[in-house]
Nucleic acid binder design. Structure first.
Lengths: 249, 249
DNA sequence: CGAGCTTTTGACGGTAGTCAACTGCGGTGG
DNA sequence: CCACCGCAGTTGACTACCGTCAAAAGCTCG
Protein backbone atom coordinates (compact mmCIF):
# COMPACT_ATOMS: atom_id res chain seq x y z
CA UNK A 1 0.00 0.00 0.00
CA UNK A 2 2.27 2.71 -1.29
CA UNK A 3 1.58 6.39 -0.88
CA UNK A 4 2.70 8.71 -3.60
CA UNK A 5 1.67 11.72 -5.60
CA UNK A 6 2.65 15.00 -7.15
CA UNK A 7 0.72 18.19 -7.78
CA UNK A 8 1.07 20.33 -10.87
CA UNK A 9 -1.12 22.40 -13.11
CA UNK A 10 -2.00 22.04 -16.75
CA UNK A 11 -4.49 23.84 -18.94
CA UNK A 12 -7.94 22.34 -19.16
CA UNK A 13 -8.02 23.43 -22.77
CA UNK A 14 -5.40 20.79 -23.38
CA UNK A 15 -7.33 18.18 -21.45
CA UNK A 16 -6.69 14.88 -23.17
CA UNK A 17 -10.27 13.80 -22.58
CA UNK A 18 -11.54 16.50 -24.93
CA UNK A 19 -10.14 14.54 -27.83
CA UNK A 20 -12.14 11.41 -27.14
CA UNK A 21 -15.43 11.47 -28.94
CA UNK A 22 -17.21 9.91 -26.01
CA UNK A 23 -17.24 13.30 -24.31
CA UNK A 24 -19.04 16.49 -25.15
CA UNK A 25 -17.13 19.65 -25.99
CA UNK A 26 -16.83 22.38 -23.40
CA UNK A 27 -17.32 26.04 -24.22
CA UNK A 28 -14.38 28.42 -23.81
CA UNK A 29 -16.10 29.97 -20.83
CA UNK A 30 -16.47 26.59 -19.24
CA UNK A 31 -12.85 25.75 -19.94
CA UNK A 32 -11.70 29.01 -18.38
CA UNK A 33 -13.77 28.32 -15.31
CA UNK A 34 -12.48 24.80 -14.97
CA UNK A 35 -8.87 25.90 -15.29
CA UNK A 36 -9.37 28.17 -12.32
CA UNK A 37 -11.56 25.79 -10.39
CA UNK A 38 -9.17 22.91 -10.67
CA UNK A 39 -6.69 22.75 -7.83
CA UNK A 40 -4.12 20.68 -9.65
CA UNK A 41 -3.26 17.21 -10.72
CA UNK A 42 -2.49 14.19 -8.71
CA UNK A 43 -0.51 11.28 -10.05
CA UNK A 44 -0.79 8.03 -8.20
CA UNK A 45 0.96 4.75 -8.75
CA UNK A 46 -0.72 1.47 -9.39
CA UNK A 47 -2.05 -0.18 -6.22
CA UNK A 48 -2.16 3.05 -4.28
CA UNK A 49 -5.19 3.59 -2.08
CA UNK A 50 -6.55 6.93 -3.24
CA UNK A 51 -9.48 7.13 -0.87
CA UNK A 52 -9.84 5.19 2.34
CA UNK A 53 -13.20 3.77 3.42
CA UNK A 54 -14.69 5.51 6.49
CA UNK A 55 -12.23 8.42 6.26
CA UNK A 56 -13.16 12.01 5.44
CA UNK A 57 -11.79 13.56 2.28
CA UNK A 58 -11.67 17.28 1.48
CA UNK A 59 -11.30 16.62 -2.23
CA UNK A 60 -13.30 15.49 -5.18
CA UNK A 61 -11.53 14.04 -8.18
CA UNK A 62 -11.99 13.45 -11.83
CA UNK A 63 -10.00 10.75 -13.60
CA UNK A 64 -7.68 11.94 -16.36
CA UNK A 65 -6.12 8.59 -17.13
CA UNK A 66 -5.99 5.11 -15.71
CA UNK A 67 -8.50 2.80 -14.05
CA UNK A 68 -9.46 2.45 -10.40
CA UNK A 69 -11.77 0.31 -8.33
CA UNK A 70 -14.35 1.36 -5.78
CA UNK A 71 -15.00 -1.20 -3.06
CA UNK A 72 -16.74 -1.75 0.24
CA UNK A 73 -15.88 -4.13 3.05
CA UNK A 74 -17.73 -6.02 5.74
CA UNK A 75 -16.37 -6.19 9.26
CA UNK A 76 -15.17 -9.75 8.83
CA UNK A 77 -13.10 -8.80 5.81
CA UNK A 78 -15.36 -9.80 2.96
CA UNK A 79 -14.86 -7.29 0.18
CA UNK A 80 -17.11 -6.23 -2.67
CA UNK A 81 -15.82 -4.27 -5.63
CA UNK A 82 -18.80 -2.10 -6.50
CA UNK A 83 -17.55 -0.45 -9.65
CA UNK A 84 -14.63 0.38 -11.91
CA UNK A 85 -13.66 3.99 -12.44
CA UNK A 86 -12.54 5.08 -15.91
CA UNK A 87 -11.23 8.34 -17.37
CA UNK A 88 -13.85 11.06 -17.14
CA UNK A 89 -15.54 9.56 -14.08
CA UNK A 90 -16.02 11.37 -10.80
CA UNK A 91 -14.44 10.16 -7.62
CA UNK A 92 -15.29 10.79 -4.01
CA UNK A 93 -18.53 12.61 -4.49
CA UNK A 94 -20.24 11.61 -1.29
CA UNK A 95 -23.55 12.95 -0.25
CA UNK A 96 -22.70 15.52 2.29
CA UNK A 97 -19.69 17.68 2.82
CA UNK A 98 -17.96 16.12 5.74
CA UNK A 99 -19.27 12.63 6.03
CA UNK A 100 -16.98 9.64 6.11
CA UNK A 101 -16.62 7.82 2.82
CA UNK A 102 -18.77 4.78 2.36
CA UNK A 103 -16.27 3.10 0.05
CA UNK A 104 -12.56 2.87 -0.63
CA UNK A 105 -10.81 3.57 -3.91
CA UNK A 106 -7.66 1.91 -5.18
CA UNK A 107 -5.72 2.51 -8.39
CA UNK A 108 -5.49 -0.55 -10.64
CA UNK A 109 -3.06 1.18 -12.99
CA UNK A 110 -0.96 4.29 -12.73
CA UNK A 111 -3.52 7.06 -12.59
CA UNK A 112 -3.75 10.80 -13.11
CA UNK A 113 -6.47 12.68 -11.29
CA UNK A 114 -7.79 16.22 -11.41
CA UNK A 115 -8.25 17.61 -7.92
CA UNK A 116 -11.10 19.85 -6.83
CA UNK A 117 -12.08 21.26 -3.48
CA UNK A 118 -15.15 19.71 -1.98
CA UNK A 119 -16.02 22.96 -0.21
CA UNK A 120 -15.94 24.95 -3.42
CA UNK A 121 -18.25 22.57 -5.25
CA UNK A 122 -21.20 24.89 -4.80
CA UNK A 123 -19.33 27.53 -6.84
CA UNK A 124 -19.39 25.28 -9.84
CA UNK A 125 -23.15 24.99 -9.59
CA UNK A 126 -23.55 28.73 -9.08
CA UNK A 127 -21.26 29.91 -11.86
CA UNK A 128 -21.60 27.18 -14.47
CA UNK A 129 -25.07 25.69 -14.18
CA UNK A 130 -24.53 23.53 -17.22
CA UNK A 131 -21.53 21.91 -15.58
CA UNK A 132 -23.57 21.38 -12.46
CA UNK A 133 -26.19 19.73 -14.58
CA UNK A 134 -23.54 17.58 -16.21
CA UNK A 135 -22.31 16.56 -12.82
CA UNK A 136 -25.75 15.29 -11.88
CA UNK A 137 -25.84 13.46 -15.18
CA UNK A 138 -22.49 11.83 -14.51
CA UNK A 139 -23.63 10.59 -11.14
CA UNK A 140 -26.86 9.34 -12.69
CA UNK A 141 -24.83 7.50 -15.33
CA UNK A 142 -22.88 5.70 -12.69
CA UNK A 143 -26.09 4.88 -10.92
CA UNK A 144 -27.34 3.23 -14.10
CA UNK A 145 -24.14 1.18 -14.22
CA UNK A 146 -24.70 0.04 -10.65
CA UNK A 147 -28.23 -1.00 -11.59
CA UNK A 148 -26.67 -3.20 -14.25
CA UNK A 149 -24.24 -4.71 -11.78
CA UNK A 150 -27.10 -5.46 -9.41
CA UNK A 151 -28.94 -7.21 -12.20
CA UNK A 152 -25.82 -9.26 -12.83
CA UNK A 153 -25.23 -10.24 -9.22
CA UNK A 154 -28.85 -10.94 -8.50
CA UNK A 155 -29.94 -12.78 -11.62
CA UNK A 156 -27.05 -14.00 -13.70
CA UNK A 157 -25.25 -17.34 -13.35
CA UNK A 158 -21.50 -17.56 -12.80
CA UNK A 159 -20.67 -17.82 -16.50
CA UNK A 160 -23.02 -15.01 -17.40
CA UNK A 161 -21.67 -12.78 -14.66
CA UNK A 162 -18.07 -13.13 -15.70
CA UNK A 163 -18.89 -12.69 -19.37
CA UNK A 164 -20.91 -9.62 -18.41
CA UNK A 165 -18.03 -8.17 -16.43
CA UNK A 166 -15.54 -8.80 -19.23
CA UNK A 167 -17.82 -7.06 -21.69
CA UNK A 168 -18.52 -4.18 -19.34
CA UNK A 169 -14.83 -3.53 -18.80
CA UNK A 170 -13.96 -4.00 -22.44
CA UNK A 171 -16.64 -1.62 -23.67
CA UNK A 172 -15.81 1.04 -21.11
CA UNK A 173 -12.18 0.68 -22.09
CA UNK A 174 -13.18 1.04 -25.71
CA UNK A 175 -15.07 4.27 -25.00
CA UNK A 176 -11.95 5.74 -23.48
CA UNK A 177 -9.63 4.56 -26.22
CA UNK A 178 -7.82 1.93 -24.20
CA UNK A 179 -8.50 -1.10 -26.39
CA UNK A 180 -6.60 -2.50 -29.35
CA UNK A 181 -8.83 -4.58 -31.59
CA UNK A 182 -10.68 -7.02 -29.40
CA UNK A 183 -8.31 -6.82 -26.45
CA UNK A 184 -8.16 -4.60 -23.39
CA UNK A 185 -4.87 -4.55 -21.54
CA UNK A 186 -5.66 -4.40 -17.88
CA UNK A 187 -3.91 -6.09 -14.98
CA UNK A 188 -6.53 -7.74 -12.82
CA UNK A 189 -6.28 -10.72 -10.50
CA UNK A 190 -8.80 -13.50 -10.28
CA UNK A 191 -9.38 -12.48 -6.71
CA UNK A 192 -10.50 -9.05 -7.90
CA UNK A 193 -12.80 -10.64 -10.44
CA UNK A 194 -14.21 -12.86 -7.70
CA UNK A 195 -14.77 -9.88 -5.42
CA UNK A 196 -16.64 -8.13 -8.21
CA UNK A 197 -18.97 -10.90 -9.31
CA UNK A 198 -19.61 -12.30 -5.85
CA UNK A 199 -18.14 -15.74 -6.47
CA UNK A 200 -15.40 -17.62 -4.65
CA UNK A 201 -11.89 -17.45 -6.03
CA UNK A 202 -11.87 -21.14 -6.90
CA UNK A 203 -15.15 -21.05 -8.73
CA UNK A 204 -14.11 -17.90 -10.56
CA UNK A 205 -10.99 -19.68 -11.74
CA UNK A 206 -12.97 -22.65 -13.02
CA UNK A 207 -15.47 -20.43 -14.78
CA UNK A 208 -12.69 -18.47 -16.47
CA UNK A 209 -11.23 -21.72 -17.73
CA UNK A 210 -14.59 -22.79 -19.06
CA UNK A 211 -15.03 -19.51 -20.93
CA UNK A 212 -11.53 -19.82 -22.33
CA UNK A 213 -12.04 -23.37 -23.56
CA UNK A 214 -15.37 -22.46 -25.09
CA UNK A 215 -13.60 -19.81 -27.19
CA UNK A 216 -15.83 -17.02 -25.96
CA UNK A 217 -13.20 -14.99 -24.17
CA UNK A 218 -9.70 -15.23 -22.78
CA UNK A 219 -9.08 -13.37 -19.57
CA UNK A 220 -5.54 -13.53 -18.24
CA UNK A 221 -3.75 -11.62 -15.51
CA UNK A 222 -2.79 -8.85 -17.87
CA UNK A 223 -5.52 -8.61 -20.50
CA UNK A 224 -9.06 -9.33 -21.59
CA UNK A 225 -9.49 -10.69 -25.08
CA UNK A 226 -12.87 -11.27 -26.65
CA UNK A 227 -12.45 -13.24 -29.88
CA UNK A 228 -16.11 -14.11 -30.27
CA UNK A 229 -17.98 -10.93 -29.47
CA UNK A 230 -21.45 -12.04 -30.59
CA UNK A 231 -21.27 -15.18 -28.50
CA UNK A 232 -19.92 -13.22 -25.54
CA UNK A 233 -22.79 -10.76 -25.77
CA UNK A 234 -25.20 -13.66 -25.98
CA UNK A 235 -23.63 -15.46 -23.03
CA UNK A 236 -23.74 -12.32 -20.91
CA UNK A 237 -27.23 -11.32 -22.04
CA UNK A 238 -25.55 -7.98 -22.46
CA UNK A 239 -27.73 -5.02 -23.28
CA UNK A 240 -25.73 -2.41 -25.12
CA UNK A 241 -28.01 0.33 -23.98
CA UNK A 242 -27.58 3.79 -25.30
CA UNK A 243 -24.05 5.03 -25.58
CA UNK A 244 -24.50 8.74 -26.02
CA UNK A 245 -21.81 11.26 -25.27
CA UNK A 246 -21.00 11.69 -21.61
CA UNK A 247 -20.56 15.06 -20.05
CA UNK A 248 -17.30 15.63 -18.30
CA UNK A 249 -15.92 17.91 -15.68
CA UNK B 1 -51.50 -3.30 -14.60
CA UNK B 2 -53.91 -0.44 -14.09
CA UNK B 3 -53.36 3.01 -15.47
CA UNK B 4 -54.62 5.88 -13.41
CA UNK B 5 -53.75 9.35 -12.30
CA UNK B 6 -54.91 12.87 -11.68
CA UNK B 7 -53.15 16.20 -11.94
CA UNK B 8 -53.61 19.06 -9.52
CA UNK B 9 -51.54 21.77 -7.92
CA UNK B 10 -50.67 22.43 -4.33
CA UNK B 11 -48.31 24.87 -2.68
CA UNK B 12 -44.77 23.67 -2.08
CA UNK B 13 -44.79 25.69 1.12
CA UNK B 14 -47.29 23.17 2.41
CA UNK B 15 -45.21 20.27 1.22
CA UNK B 16 -45.70 17.51 3.77
CA UNK B 17 -42.07 16.49 3.46
CA UNK B 18 -40.96 19.78 5.00
CA UNK B 19 -42.28 18.57 8.32
CA UNK B 20 -40.13 15.50 8.49
CA UNK B 21 -36.87 16.20 10.20
CA UNK B 22 -34.98 14.01 7.77
CA UNK B 23 -35.12 16.83 5.23
CA UNK B 24 -33.48 20.20 5.16
CA UNK B 25 -35.54 23.39 5.16
CA UNK B 26 -35.95 25.33 1.94
CA UNK B 27 -35.66 29.10 1.76
CA UNK B 28 -38.71 31.14 0.77
CA UNK B 29 -37.05 31.93 -2.55
CA UNK B 30 -36.49 28.27 -3.19
CA UNK B 31 -40.06 27.45 -2.26
CA UNK B 32 -41.35 30.11 -4.62
CA UNK B 33 -39.24 28.75 -7.42
CA UNK B 34 -40.35 25.19 -6.81
CA UNK B 35 -44.00 26.14 -6.76
CA UNK B 36 -43.60 27.57 -10.24
CA UNK B 37 -41.28 24.88 -11.48
CA UNK B 38 -43.54 22.07 -10.43
CA UNK B 39 -45.98 21.02 -13.12
CA UNK B 40 -48.44 19.36 -10.81
CA UNK B 41 -49.14 16.27 -8.85
CA UNK B 42 -49.76 12.78 -10.00
CA UNK B 43 -51.59 10.24 -7.92
CA UNK B 44 -51.14 6.62 -8.85
CA UNK B 45 -52.72 3.52 -7.44
CA UNK B 46 -50.88 0.61 -5.94
CA UNK B 47 -49.46 -1.75 -8.56
CA UNK B 48 -49.50 0.86 -11.30
CA UNK B 49 -46.46 0.95 -13.58
CA UNK B 50 -45.31 4.54 -13.34
CA UNK B 51 -42.36 4.27 -15.71
CA UNK B 52 -41.87 1.56 -18.29
CA UNK B 53 -38.44 0.09 -18.97
CA UNK B 54 -37.04 1.02 -22.41
CA UNK B 55 -39.65 3.74 -22.93
CA UNK B 56 -38.91 7.48 -23.10
CA UNK B 57 -40.37 9.75 -20.46
CA UNK B 58 -40.68 13.53 -20.66
CA UNK B 59 -41.02 13.85 -16.91
CA UNK B 60 -39.00 13.66 -13.79
CA UNK B 61 -40.72 12.97 -10.50
CA UNK B 62 -40.26 13.40 -6.82
CA UNK B 63 -42.11 11.17 -4.39
CA UNK B 64 -44.51 12.93 -2.03
CA UNK B 65 -45.91 9.82 -0.39
CA UNK B 66 -45.85 6.09 -0.84
CA UNK B 67 -43.22 3.55 -1.84
CA UNK B 68 -42.21 2.29 -5.26
CA UNK B 69 -39.78 -0.21 -6.71
CA UNK B 70 -37.24 0.27 -9.47
CA UNK B 71 -36.45 -2.90 -11.42
CA UNK B 72 -34.66 -4.22 -14.47
CA UNK B 73 -35.38 -7.30 -16.53
CA UNK B 74 -33.42 -9.73 -18.62
CA UNK B 75 -34.74 -10.91 -21.98
CA UNK B 76 -35.74 -14.29 -20.60
CA UNK B 77 -37.88 -12.70 -17.92
CA UNK B 78 -35.58 -12.77 -14.92
CA UNK B 79 -36.23 -9.63 -12.89
CA UNK B 80 -34.06 -7.74 -10.44
CA UNK B 81 -35.48 -5.12 -8.11
CA UNK B 82 -32.62 -2.65 -7.88
CA UNK B 83 -34.00 -0.29 -5.26
CA UNK B 84 -36.97 0.96 -3.30
CA UNK B 85 -38.11 4.53 -3.73
CA UNK B 86 -39.32 6.44 -0.69
CA UNK B 87 -40.80 9.91 -0.14
CA UNK B 88 -38.31 12.59 -1.09
CA UNK B 89 -36.53 10.42 -3.64
CA UNK B 90 -36.12 11.33 -7.28
CA UNK B 91 -37.62 9.23 -10.03
CA UNK B 92 -36.79 8.91 -13.68
CA UNK B 93 -33.65 10.97 -13.70
CA UNK B 94 -31.87 9.27 -16.56
CA UNK B 95 -28.59 10.50 -17.90
CA UNK B 96 -29.59 12.23 -21.07
CA UNK B 97 -32.69 13.98 -22.15
CA UNK B 98 -34.32 11.60 -24.53
CA UNK B 99 -32.83 8.22 -23.86
CA UNK B 100 -34.96 5.21 -23.14
CA UNK B 101 -35.26 4.31 -19.49
CA UNK B 102 -32.96 1.60 -18.25
CA UNK B 103 -35.39 0.48 -15.56
CA UNK B 104 -39.08 0.24 -14.83
CA UNK B 105 -40.89 1.71 -11.83
CA UNK B 106 -43.95 0.28 -10.14
CA UNK B 107 -45.94 1.63 -7.20
CA UNK B 108 -46.02 -0.72 -4.22
CA UNK B 109 -48.55 1.42 -2.40
CA UNK B 110 -50.81 4.24 -3.46
CA UNK B 111 -48.40 7.00 -4.35
CA UNK B 112 -48.37 10.75 -4.82
CA UNK B 113 -45.73 12.22 -7.10
CA UNK B 114 -44.59 15.74 -7.93
CA UNK B 115 -44.18 16.17 -11.66
CA UNK B 116 -41.42 18.17 -13.33
CA UNK B 117 -40.50 18.69 -16.96
CA UNK B 118 -37.33 16.96 -18.00
CA UNK B 119 -36.62 19.67 -20.57
CA UNK B 120 -36.83 22.42 -17.99
CA UNK B 121 -34.42 20.73 -15.61
CA UNK B 122 -31.59 22.99 -16.66
CA UNK B 123 -33.60 25.99 -15.41
CA UNK B 124 -33.45 24.63 -11.91
CA UNK B 125 -29.68 24.48 -12.11
CA UNK B 126 -29.46 27.96 -13.60
CA UNK B 127 -31.83 29.71 -11.22
CA UNK B 128 -31.36 27.80 -7.99
CA UNK B 129 -27.80 26.47 -7.88
CA UNK B 130 -28.27 25.17 -4.39
CA UNK B 131 -31.18 23.05 -5.51
CA UNK B 132 -29.10 21.78 -8.40
CA UNK B 133 -26.41 20.90 -5.93
CA UNK B 134 -28.95 19.12 -3.77
CA UNK B 135 -30.12 17.17 -6.76
CA UNK B 136 -26.63 15.87 -7.36
CA UNK B 137 -26.44 15.00 -3.71
CA UNK B 138 -29.71 13.08 -3.88
CA UNK B 139 -28.49 11.04 -6.80
CA UNK B 140 -25.21 10.41 -5.00
CA UNK B 141 -27.15 9.24 -1.96
CA UNK B 142 -29.00 6.71 -4.01
CA UNK B 143 -25.73 5.60 -5.53
CA UNK B 144 -24.43 4.93 -2.03
CA UNK B 145 -27.52 2.82 -1.34
CA UNK B 146 -26.87 0.81 -4.49
CA UNK B 147 -23.30 0.25 -3.33
CA UNK B 148 -24.76 -1.25 -0.16
CA UNK B 149 -27.09 -3.48 -2.14
CA UNK B 150 -24.18 -4.68 -4.24
CA UNK B 151 -22.26 -5.53 -1.10
CA UNK B 152 -25.29 -7.50 0.08
CA UNK B 153 -25.80 -9.45 -3.14
CA UNK B 154 -22.12 -10.11 -3.67
CA UNK B 155 -20.97 -10.99 -0.18
CA UNK B 156 -23.83 -11.75 2.17
CA UNK B 157 -25.45 -15.14 2.71
CA UNK B 158 -29.18 -15.70 2.27
CA UNK B 159 -30.02 -15.02 5.92
CA UNK B 160 -27.83 -11.95 6.01
CA UNK B 161 -29.27 -10.60 2.80
CA UNK B 162 -32.86 -10.86 3.91
CA UNK B 163 -32.10 -9.42 7.33
CA UNK B 164 -30.24 -6.61 5.58
CA UNK B 165 -33.16 -5.88 3.29
CA UNK B 166 -35.64 -5.89 6.17
CA UNK B 167 -33.47 -3.44 8.08
CA UNK B 168 -32.90 -1.26 5.05
CA UNK B 169 -36.62 -0.97 4.37
CA UNK B 170 -37.49 -0.50 8.01
CA UNK B 171 -34.95 2.26 8.54
CA UNK B 172 -35.90 4.09 5.37
CA UNK B 173 -39.50 3.81 6.44
CA UNK B 174 -38.56 5.18 9.83
CA UNK B 175 -36.84 8.19 8.28
CA UNK B 176 -39.99 9.05 6.42
CA UNK B 177 -42.29 8.53 9.38
CA UNK B 178 -43.95 5.36 8.15
CA UNK B 179 -43.14 3.07 11.07
CA UNK B 180 -44.98 2.39 14.30
CA UNK B 181 -42.66 1.11 17.00
CA UNK B 182 -40.69 -1.75 15.51
CA UNK B 183 -43.05 -2.44 12.64
CA UNK B 184 -43.29 -1.11 9.11
CA UNK B 185 -46.57 -1.74 7.35
CA UNK B 186 -45.75 -2.51 3.75
CA UNK B 187 -47.38 -5.04 1.45
CA UNK B 188 -44.67 -7.04 -0.21
CA UNK B 189 -44.73 -10.54 -1.68
CA UNK B 190 -42.06 -13.15 -1.15
CA UNK B 191 -41.50 -13.07 -4.88
CA UNK B 192 -40.58 -9.40 -4.64
CA UNK B 193 -38.21 -10.14 -1.79
CA UNK B 194 -36.67 -12.94 -3.83
CA UNK B 195 -36.25 -10.64 -6.83
CA UNK B 196 -34.49 -8.12 -4.62
CA UNK B 197 -32.03 -10.36 -2.84
CA UNK B 198 -31.28 -12.59 -5.81
CA UNK B 199 -32.58 -15.82 -4.28
CA UNK B 200 -35.21 -18.25 -5.53
CA UNK B 201 -38.73 -17.92 -4.23
CA UNK B 202 -38.54 -21.25 -2.40
CA UNK B 203 -35.29 -20.49 -0.69
CA UNK B 204 -36.52 -17.04 0.25
CA UNK B 205 -39.55 -18.60 1.87
CA UNK B 206 -37.42 -21.00 3.90
CA UNK B 207 -35.06 -18.26 4.98
CA UNK B 208 -37.96 -16.07 6.09
CA UNK B 209 -39.26 -18.94 8.20
CA UNK B 210 -35.83 -19.43 9.72
CA UNK B 211 -35.60 -15.75 10.66
CA UNK B 212 -39.12 -15.86 12.10
CA UNK B 213 -38.43 -18.93 14.23
CA UNK B 214 -35.16 -17.46 15.44
CA UNK B 215 -37.10 -14.47 16.77
CA UNK B 216 -34.99 -11.97 14.85
CA UNK B 217 -37.70 -10.65 12.58
CA UNK B 218 -41.19 -11.44 11.33
CA UNK B 219 -41.88 -10.53 7.75
CA UNK B 220 -45.40 -11.23 6.55
CA UNK B 221 -47.26 -10.21 3.42
CA UNK B 222 -48.37 -6.97 4.97
CA UNK B 223 -45.68 -5.90 7.41
CA UNK B 224 -42.11 -6.11 8.62
CA UNK B 225 -41.64 -6.49 12.35
CA UNK B 226 -38.24 -6.43 14.01
CA UNK B 227 -38.61 -7.51 17.62
CA UNK B 228 -34.91 -8.05 18.24
CA UNK B 229 -33.20 -5.08 16.62
CA UNK B 230 -29.68 -5.68 17.95
CA UNK B 231 -29.68 -9.26 16.78
CA UNK B 232 -31.10 -8.24 13.41
CA UNK B 233 -28.36 -5.66 12.97
CA UNK B 234 -25.80 -8.26 13.92
CA UNK B 235 -27.26 -10.85 11.58
CA UNK B 236 -27.28 -8.40 8.69
CA UNK B 237 -23.86 -6.95 9.51
CA UNK B 238 -25.71 -3.70 9.05
CA UNK B 239 -23.69 -0.52 9.01
CA UNK B 240 -25.79 2.40 10.16
CA UNK B 241 -23.72 4.85 8.26
CA UNK B 242 -24.36 8.52 8.68
CA UNK B 243 -27.94 9.61 8.65
CA UNK B 244 -27.66 13.32 8.03
CA UNK B 245 -30.46 15.40 6.67
CA UNK B 246 -31.26 14.77 3.05
CA UNK B 247 -31.86 17.56 0.63
CA UNK B 248 -35.12 17.49 -1.21
CA UNK B 249 -36.56 18.92 -4.34
C1' DC C 1 17.21 -20.12 -4.34
C1' DG C 2 13.58 -19.15 -1.39
C1' DA C 3 9.65 -15.90 -0.32
C1' DG C 4 5.34 -14.47 -1.64
C1' DC C 5 1.71 -13.97 -4.74
C1' DT C 6 -1.39 -15.81 -8.24
C1' DT C 7 -3.26 -19.58 -10.61
C1' DT C 8 -4.61 -24.26 -10.77
C1' DT C 9 -6.36 -28.80 -9.25
C1' DG C 10 -8.79 -32.32 -6.35
C1' DA C 11 -12.06 -33.79 -3.01
C1' DC C 12 -15.90 -32.96 -0.31
C1' DG C 13 -19.88 -30.67 1.67
C1' DG C 14 -23.51 -27.43 1.92
C1' DT C 15 -26.23 -23.78 0.36
C1' DA C 16 -29.41 -22.71 -2.78
C1' DG C 17 -32.16 -23.92 -7.26
C1' DT C 18 -35.67 -26.72 -9.54
C1' DC C 19 -39.77 -29.33 -9.93
C1' DA C 20 -43.97 -30.44 -8.22
C1' DA C 21 -47.70 -30.67 -5.32
C1' DC C 22 -50.62 -28.92 -1.69
C1' DT C 23 -52.66 -25.44 1.43
C1' DG C 24 -55.10 -21.26 2.51
C1' DC C 25 -57.43 -17.24 1.18
C1' DG C 26 -60.17 -13.92 -1.28
C1' DG C 27 -62.86 -12.98 -5.26
C1' DT C 28 -66.09 -14.29 -8.80
C1' DG C 29 -69.77 -16.29 -10.94
C1' DG C 30 -72.83 -20.09 -12.00
C1' DC D 1 -74.37 -20.39 -1.55
C1' DC D 2 -70.55 -22.66 -2.65
C1' DA D 3 -67.75 -24.40 -6.45
C1' DC D 4 -64.08 -22.74 -8.91
C1' DC D 5 -60.24 -19.95 -9.93
C1' DG D 6 -56.03 -17.42 -9.18
C1' DC D 7 -52.59 -15.94 -6.24
C1' DA D 8 -49.40 -16.21 -2.34
C1' DG D 9 -47.32 -19.09 0.76
C1' DT D 10 -45.60 -23.65 2.16
C1' DT D 11 -43.54 -28.28 1.92
C1' DG D 12 -40.84 -32.32 0.17
C1' DA D 13 -37.53 -34.58 -2.70
C1' DC D 14 -33.87 -34.26 -5.56
C1' DT D 15 -30.13 -31.93 -7.86
C1' DA D 16 -26.35 -29.02 -8.79
C1' DC D 17 -23.99 -25.06 -8.50
C1' DC D 18 -20.87 -23.11 -5.91
C1' DG D 19 -18.00 -22.67 -1.44
C1' DT D 20 -14.46 -24.47 1.51
C1' DC D 21 -10.27 -26.74 2.59
C1' DA D 22 -5.93 -28.15 1.17
C1' DA D 23 -2.08 -28.59 -1.59
C1' DA D 24 0.66 -28.01 -5.63
C1' DA D 25 2.37 -25.55 -9.61
C1' DG D 26 4.02 -21.18 -11.98
C1' DC D 27 5.81 -16.65 -11.59
C1' DT D 28 8.27 -12.62 -10.22
C1' DC D 29 11.52 -10.53 -7.43
C1' DG D 30 15.12 -9.64 -4.20
Amino acid sequence: MKESGTIKRIECSNCPLQKLNAFRDLSTSELAFMTDFKQGEFSVDKRTHVLVEFSISPHVYTVLSGILIRFKTLEDGRRQIVNYVFPGDLLGLQGAMHEPLTHGVEAMTDVKLCVFSRDRMIELFAQQPKLGFDMTWLVAKEEAALDEHLLALGQRTAKERIAYLALFLFLRGQETGMTKGNVLELAITQEQIADTVGLSLVHTNRTLQWLRKSGILTWTTEKIEIPDMPRAIDMAQYDHGSRSKRPFI
